[in-house]
């Protein structure tokens, strides 16, 4: 099953079935901490010839409660969220691709730990790399307890970059 990719992959997009090279999933949220995770991933990837898949997860639940006004604006807000995420991911992926590390990316709405695991499974990834803490709003959404939940459920090894 293909993972839904809302924001299409950058150059060198990978369908996730390429068994030739290893894939590392990197959790990204636009913070300095996640940048350190990316840098670490790049360093490892260069050594092993792996490619990177950047994942930005926007915390969201299908079972939350909202006012009617929020519902009416939800589609618009979602588009804005995806755009903001794209503004973080696209330049980063461009930069890494230019530096010689094949990089793809996607943005998802849902529970961060669950989705990172799902993406890792779907992409046949060999490891997940995330930053330890974040301090931006997106960071709180992405990393609030993420490291702990992720290591408990991840199907592949998880690296937490301090």
């Amino acid at each position: 099953m293909n993972a839904p990719t809302f924001l299409q992959a950058g150059p060198g997009g990978d369908d996730g079935r390429n068994q030739m090279a290893e894939i590392y999933i990197v959790g990204v949220d636009g913070t300095a901490q996640s940048r350190r995770a990316v840098d670490y991933a790049v360093e490892r990837a260069k050594k092993s010839g792996a490619s990177l898949h950047l994942a930005l997860v926007l915390e969201w639940s299908p079972f939350s409660f909202h006012t009617p006004e929020e519902l009416a604006e939800r589609h618009k807000r979602r588009e804005q969220e995806l755009q903001r995420a794209n503004d973080v991911l696209q330049p980063l992926a461009d930069e890494l691709n230019k530096a010689g590390v094949k990089t793809t990316f996607e943005t998802r709405h849902g529970h961060a730990a669950d989705l990172l695991c799902k993406i890792a499974t779907d992409k046949n990834a060999t490891q997940i790399i995330i930053g330890r803490t974040g301090d931006s709003v997106i960071a709180q959404r992405l990393l609030g307890g993420l490291a702990i939940s992720l290591v408990q459920v991840a199907p592949v090894p998880v690296t937490i970059v301090p």
Partner: peptide
């Protein structure tokens, strides 16, 4: 959510519409 397409994650779900209408 048995019929929810993962592609639509982040949109208004049937549960949310029901909960809001119920409130």
């Amino acid at each position: 959510g048995d019929y929810l397409d993962p592609k639509d994650a982040g949109e208004v779900t049937p549960f949310q519409a029901l909960a809001t209408a119920l409130s």
